[in-house]
């Protein structure tokens, strides 16, 4: 198991983010058990595992989205650039700006396409109109949706197709210039063609961002990720290069899951 090797040097600068002995509770239920792993810059890490294994919960710990659940509790630590994000002194609002998120179902605001992307800039105090316009355009281009929407930026975002909505949500996340992008099964609600577009997009984006993606689709994990981590029953079973995980898993559970024996 190569997890302990990773955890030994989790303060090393090569990890953009890392977690150490992370436990997570919903009330009395322990949803995550002692999770330790690191994420490198400019790499895509896929979190896989059967439903309920804790992969989404873990993802939501990384930008403290679970804070919104009143009965939840976290033990252990998660670091971003070497700093523990669960220290009381950490400003969670700033953290979430650095660690952006794309959700399972596309969730555009009931506003215009332009306003959706500009929202993150506005709430962070940017009022310079020209700058906002440039930023919106750049983000939409990066999310590979600019050509489809450039003529109707003032139309409501709810009129877009599901795949377009999800790319808009990615553009929205990119507009605030995050360093890490979390994606929670971003293609699970989409058709194959839209899924393919999202996957291509992830491939392009990894040049600039640290991307962590939760997926229940193993082919997708194999296609888009550099590193894959397998979760089962709230534990990190195994993590390593995607190639080696899929060709030579070291744990029996991983092999069973990958070969489709359960999950």
């Amino acid at each position: 198991m190569n997890v302990p090797e990773q955890s030994k040097n989790d303060d090393s600068p090569e990890y953009k983010m890392s977690s150490e002995d992370l436990d997570f509770y919903y009330g009395d239920f322990k949803a995550l058990n002692n999770v330790t792993m690191g994420f490198k810059s400019c790499e895509v890490t896929a979190l896989i595992g059967p439903s309920g294994c804790g992969k989404s919960t873990f993802l939501r710990c990384l930008n403290r989205m679970n804070d919104l659940i009143p009965i939840s509790r976290v033990d252990g630590k998660i670091t971003l650039d070497g700093e523990n994000i669960y220290l009381p002194s950490v400003d969670v609002v700033m953290l979430r700006r650095k660690v952006g998120m794309v959700f399972q179902k596309p969730n555009p605001f009931p506003k215009s396409i332009f306003d959706n992307v500009a929202y993150g800039l506005w709430v962070n105090g940017i009022k310079d109109k020209a700058f906002v316009r440039d930023c919106v355009e750049e983000s939409l281009k990066r999310a590979a949706i600019w050509d489809e929407v450039k003529d109707r930026l003032q139309d409501t975002a709810l009129g877009l197709s599901g795949g377009q909505q999800q790319r808009l949500c990615i553009a929205r996340a990119l507009a605030v210039k995050p360093e890490v992008v979390l994606m929670d099964e971003p293609a699970s609600a989409l058709d194959p063609i839209a899924t393919q577009k999202i996957e291509e997009l992830i491939h392009q984006l990894k040049e600039m961002y640290t991307i962590i993606i939760v997926t229940h689709n193993m082919q997708q994990a194999a296609r888009v990720s550099d590193v894959t981590a397998f979760f089962y029953l709230g534990k990190l079973i195994e993590a390593g290069d995607t190639d080696s995980i899929f060709t030579r898993p070291t744990k029996k559970q991983t092999e069973d899951y990958i070969t489709g024996r359960f999950g």
Binding site: F103, N107, V123
Partner: peptide, 23 residues
């Protein structure tokens, strides 16, 4: 109002008040 909208706003670095007033 679906929680997904609140989460989207908060994930972009909006404060709770901004989320309430703008979304």
């Amino acid at each position: 109002v679906p929680d997904a909208l609140r989460e989207a706003s908060v994930a972009l670095g909006a404060t709770q008040l901004q989320t309430i007033v703008r979304v």
